[in-house]
Simulated scan of single mutants.
Amino acid sequence: MIIWRGWGILALLITVLFCLPAGLGIEALLGSEFVPFGIAAALVLAGVSVFLLGQRLNAPRPGYHPQTGQPVLYRNQHTLFFVPMQYVGFVLLGASVLLLVAGVVTIL
């Protein structure tokens, strides 16, 4: 079961949209032993994209309370598995490092 709030599901969709073509393309061009390297590169791009999108979506916005007129900060919460979207980008970067190490170990 996938748990998200707001637009947090975009983190998963962006990751799939980056990794699927990269994995299939690398396999077609170089062979299956190099697939982890292509997916690791795609995870880096997806991580940066998710981080930047999460920063933009979760930025607090100034506004005014409708009844009192007092200034307030409206905070958005776009999460995936209770993790704010911008931090999911760091998780993806960590996964790319692990996949890169696993790919090197497999080749050796």
Rank of each mutant, 00 (worst) to 15 (best):
M1I: 03
M1L: 10
I2S: 12
I3V: 09
R5H: 14
G8N: 05
L10E: 12
A11T: 00
A11L: 01
L13K: 06
I14D: 01
I14G: 01
T15R: 00
V16H: 05
V16C: 10
L17K: 08
C19D: 06
A22C: 07
G23L: 03
L24M: 11
L24H: 10
G25T: 07
E27I: 00
A28Y: 06
S32F: 07
A40S: 15
A40T: 05
A41Q: 03
L43S: 02
L45G: 15
A46I: 03
F51N: 08
F51E: 15
Q55P: 02
Q55M: 12
R56D: 01
N58W: 07
A59D: 05
P60L: 03
G63A: 06
H65G: 03
P66G: 02
Q67M: 11
Q67P: 00
T68Y: 07
G69M: 06
P71Q: 13
L73T: 10
Y74R: 13
Y74S: 13
Q77I: 05
T79V: 06
F81P: 03
F81I: 10
F82N: 11
F82L: 11
P84W: 07
Y87N: 03
V88Y: 08
G89V: 00
G94W: 02
A102L: 12
G103N: 05
V105G: 02
